Amino acid sequence: MSSTEPTADRIVRADRLAPVEVAEVLALARVAGDTDGADPLDEHVLLRLRDPEAAAVHLTARATDNTLTGYAHLDTTDPANGIGVELVVHPTYRRRGTGRALARGVLAAASGPLRAWAHGDHPSAAALAVDLGFARARVLWQLRRPLIAALPEPPLPDGVQLRAFRPGEDDAAWLTLNNAAFAQHPEQGRWTSADLRVRLTEPWFDPAGFLLAVDSVTGRLLGFHWTKVHERPGSARIGEVYVLGVDPSAHRGGLGKALTAAGLTYLRDRRGLDRVMLYVDESNTRAVGLYEGLGFARWAAHVNYQLGGLTS
């Protein structure tokens, strides 16, 4: 991607992809992820790829034999707050200008400020970002820990009990709590009922692994730990602390630590996993400290680059 040589690939812009094209993009992303050790497209993009109604711009790069050599996704849902960009080049076709051509296609297609993720913080992505005037603005850490090691067992605060999420019954209350817990978060704090619903229909969704902390008397939701299990042919299974949140009024009572431990125990004892990961913003020092205190260590970094009119 850092090559300055012009590419012979054909760059095509589209507002929709045919199912066969979506399959090609997913296959390309799997190969790139296996090669780089970090998936190039995040869950949000993968969900949008499968949604024909999602507002997006797709850029595909194809060699002279029509092989898909690269792909860029522009999420145009909210241009004023930054068009989300993710870009991937097939490992076999790197260092021949494809990434740069796609990036210039992104600039030509964009009508507002940009937020571009570089998963894995690869040097080629950093070089390309600098060349095109993007600024490094945010770092998301992936942390991991083994589950075969002893797990902490912090108690729940008095008057709090755990139960499983009930699809269709807890949706509205959970959305309210989630958006309050992540009010300052650029992605998680803006979830809608549609965002929740699409994940509840994913093959990996397991309500038993979606733990809710509730007031024992009133039943009010106080916090949650939503776990996820990643299963891909040819790869070892790994659990994830998918989303963990606590009502702002319930902070500093140990609930976050207790919820984390409960989810880890579920992934080990109920799902038979031996390792787990999570994502956390580098700037969220409180959360980083919580997770490192629970035995997590840094595994990889994902960097967000920004261009034009954004302050965070």
Rank of each mutant, 00 (worst) to 15 (best):
M1P: 02
S2Y: 00
I11K: 07
R13C: 02
D15R: 11
P19L: 13
P19A: 13
E21V: 10
A23M: 08
V31T: 15
A32S: 12
T35N: 12
A38H: 01
E43P: 02
L46N: 14
L49I: 02
E53L: 13
A55R: 15
A61N: 06
T64L: 12
T67D: 12
Y71I: 05
H73E: 03
D75V: 06
G82Q: 00
I83H: 05
L87A: 04
V89D: 06
H90C: 10
H90L: 10
H90I: 10
Y93I: 00
R94F: 10
R95A: 14
R96P: 02
A101S: 10
L107R: 14
A108R: 11
A110P: 03
A110F: 09
S111C: 09
A118M: 11
A118P: 00
A118T: 07
A127M: 05
A129L: 11
V130S: 14
L132V: 06
R136H: 14
A149H: 14
E153W: 05
P157H: 01
P157L: 11
D158F: 06
D158R: 14
G159E: 00
V160H: 02
R163H: 04
A164H: 09
A164E: 09
F165I: 04
E169Q: 15
A173V: 10
A173L: 08
A173N: 03
N179V: 04
A180S: 11
A181E: 01
A181D: 08
A181M: 07
P186I: 08
S193Y: 01
R197F: 08
V198G: 00
T201A: 15
W204Y: 14
A208P: 07
A213P: 06
V217K: 13
R220G: 12
G223H: 05
G223M: 04
G239N: 09
V243W: 01
L244A: 10
D247C: 03
P248H: 07
H251E: 05
A258H: 06
D274M: 06
V276Q: 01
D281N: 09
E282W: 11
L290A: 11
E292R: 15
R298Y: 05
A300E: 03
Q306E: 15
Q306A: 13
